[in-house]
């Protein structure tokens, strides 16, 4: 199918971007285009103007500032996966992004684009939820910082206005001996996940859990974090603890039937993957501490 007619503008700086957004009512930013362009071809998205920001260097960085990893919204999946800095400081992100589509998609798609598109099971969103990331949203008026849970409004909708651009992802670097795990079930390699889970677990010298963070995709309108501290904190993470955490998750989610899978199966899968991810993250934490 072919898109509706549209105009195209390319900008290389943020001021030029804001000017373009301000000049048009129905403008849409395009970066990697991996989600937007198919939607345009299906005529589900009908922007009157596409503003191409691929040349805006100011949005392309991957740097660490103290305890925060700052990733520019234009960073491609490939850049982040290949970055030694990211592999060192936030390996959970690398593990998650490896499940995004295929190499061709990872060469073009951007993390910023994924976050703003907000598919319910997007690996980027699930990992960032688990990491407790913050998002920097910029406009001609300045910047505002939004915690990720607040940024996700509903499926395909985020807290970003037509005149704004997502500028940066700010990710708190997990403490040194934090174990991580990412688990996903999809029908084929590279497909949208049916359900995915990201987990971070920190342990003390006796192996008892001191901190845990858990997020799921595919079980709600957006990726969601679930607090399972009550089941895990202060004790070693064994199968019984993991099952208790899975029970907390089960009570907190209400997956719906959709074209991907039925709610009952997603609920079952969430339970399986939560247990697997927590146990694996705990193993990883113990190994790092050894």
């Amino acid at each position: 199918m072919k898109p509706k007619s549209f105009d195209y503008v390319r900008v290389d700086t943020l001021p030029a971007l804001f000017a373009a957004l301000g000049a048009h009512d129905n403008a849409k930013i395009v970066a990697g285009g991996q989600s937007l362009v198919p939607m345009m071809n299906f005529r589900v998205a009908q922007p009157e103007v596409l503003v191409d920001i691929n040349g805006v260097e100011a949005l392309r960085h991957v740097v660490r500032e103290g305890a925060v990893l700052r990733i520019g919204a234009l960073a491609r999946y490939r850049d982040v996966i290949d970055s030694p800095l990211v592999r060192d400081s936030v390996p959970l992100l690398v593990a998650a992004l490896g499940h995004v589509g295929y190499p061709a998609i990872r060469n073009r798609g951007t993390l910023g684009g994924s976050v703003v598109h907000n598919d319910p099971s997007a690996e980027t969103g699930v990992a960032l939820c688990c990491l407790g990331a913050e998002l920097v949203v910029a406009s001609a008026e300045g910047e505002r910082v939004v915690p990720i849970a607040e940024f996700f409004v509903t499926t395909y909708l985020t807290d970003i206005a037509p005149h704004e651009v997502l500028a940066e992802l700010r990710i708190p670097v997990p403490a040194p001996r934090t174990g991580y795990a990412f688990r996903e079930v999809a029908k084929r390699v590279g497909d949208f996940a049916i359900v995915n889970v990201a987990a971070l677990v920190a342990v003390d010298t006796r192996g008892a859990t001191t901190a845990v963070s858990l997020a799921l995709g595919g079980v709600a309108e957006t990726p969601v974090a679930v607090d399972v501290g009550a089941a895990l904190l202060g004790r070693p993470l064994d199968a019984a603890r993991a099952a208790e955490a899975a029970r907390l998750v089960d009570a907190a989610i209400d997956p719906q039937d959709d074209n991907v899978a039925g709610g009952e199966y997603k609920r079952h899968l969430a339970g399986v993957l939560v247990k697997q991810a927590l146990l694996a993250a705990h193993e990883d934490a113990l190994a790092k501490g050894a």
């Binding site: 989600s35 198919p38 589900v44 509903t154 395909y156 909708l157």
Partner: peptide, 16 residues
């Protein structure tokens, strides 16, 4: 005949 992407969004959009 809608794309799979649109199917995901319909209920959330109706709610919104």
């Amino acid at each position: 005949a809608m794309t799979g992407m649109a199917q995901r969004a319909l209920l959330p959009i109706a709610k919104l």
